[in-house]
């Protein structure tokens, strides 16, 4: 059921990416598919996150002037890096997720830009400005979206925390005072 929910969220994210820029220009600086790909990677399902990254990236590229596959490449790489971080470090906390999404967005943009330059295509956007706006926009939107998604996946979050932190052994101690009273 969790996979269905994340897949649905990813489809919605791609649709938002296709349409929202025409409603308001600043919304171009929010990378909705990346937010969901990183969320999938944060759940610990690494292989699924890789496939989500490729699918969402190609869907985004299809309606862009950029190279077909550039977003797929960068998002797949980001999904892998985030999944590796999740494997080693505990980031199941909203405050810890903020630097993760910011870093993921930065890496995604750098790889995307780099691949275009490597293959002789010059992106139109100014490098520093576009990079900064995208990181800020995606981080803010990502934090809010993660709050919403966590409320949808509340049960899974609880289970995951239970796996990470095993329950403390409950030992019953005798109360010496009470023992004393018996005497």
């Amino acid at each position: 059921m969790e996979h269905v929910k994340i897949t649905t969220a990813l489809i919605v994210a791609v649709l938002l990416q296709w349409t929202l820029r025409n409603v308001a220009e600043p919304l171009a600086f929010i990378d909705f598919p990346l937010i969901i790909v990183v969320y999938a990677a944060l759940q610990g399902s690494s292989i699924r996150a890789l496939f989500y990254g490729t699918a969402a990236g190609i869907a985004t590229d299809a309606l862009s002037y950029g190279l077909l596959g550039a977003n797929g490449f960068s998002k797949t790489l980001v999904a892998f890096v985030v999944a590796e971080i999740v494997r080693r470090v505990y980031v199941d906390n909203l405050l810890l997720r903020i630097p993760v999404i910011a870093g993921a967005c930065l890496l995604d943009d750098l790889v995307y830009y780099g691949m275009h330059r490597l293959l002789g295509q010059e992106p139109t956007g100014e490098f520093v400005t576009t990079l900064a706006y995208t990181v800020i926009g995606t981080t803010i939107a990502g934090t809010i979206i993660y709050l919403l998604l966590d409320s949808f996946f509340a049960e899974n979050v609880k289970n995951r925390r239970r796996e990470v932190f095993t329950a403390r052994r409950q030992t019953r101690r005798r109360n010496p005072i009470r023992l004393g009273n018996r005497r």
Partner: peptide
């Protein structure tokens, strides 16, 4: 009806 899906391009 639509704009470029990437912030790096402007079509």
């Amino acid at each position: 009806i639509g704009r470029d899906t990437s912030a790096w391009f402007d079509t």
